[in-house]
């Protein structure tokens, strides 16, 4: 069950893919489609396995990823 989720700004992403390798759960990959810059961008294909560890956001050079954490209500 997901502990959180990444919010990816697909227009800000330059497709450098550093986040894909950095994600411990390996739940990120490059999109098939392109953003306005003509770049493929990162998508999270298995959000339920996200631990909100923030690795992807930390390594992103373009601040294109925000992380939310689910907080028990």
């Amino acid at each position: 069950m997901a502990k959180g989720k990444p919010g990816i700004d697909i227009e800000r992403c330059k497709g450098c893919a550093l986040c894909i390798e950095a994600c411990p759960e390996k739940i990120l990959k490059m999109s098939e489609s392109f953003n306005r810059q003509g770049q493929p961008y990162t998508i999270c294909f298995e959000p339920e396995r996200c631990t909100s560890c923030m690795s992807c956001a930390i390594i992103c050079p373009d601040s294109a990823i925000r992380i939310w954490r689910y907080v028990a209500v």
Binding site: S63, W68, R69, Y70, A72
Partner: peptide, 11 residues
């Protein structure tokens, strides 16, 4: 977890 609250932890 729609019912769980969401907190922005990295921006």
């Amino acid at each position: 977890n729609e019912d769980a609250d969401v907190k922005l932890v990295y921006s």
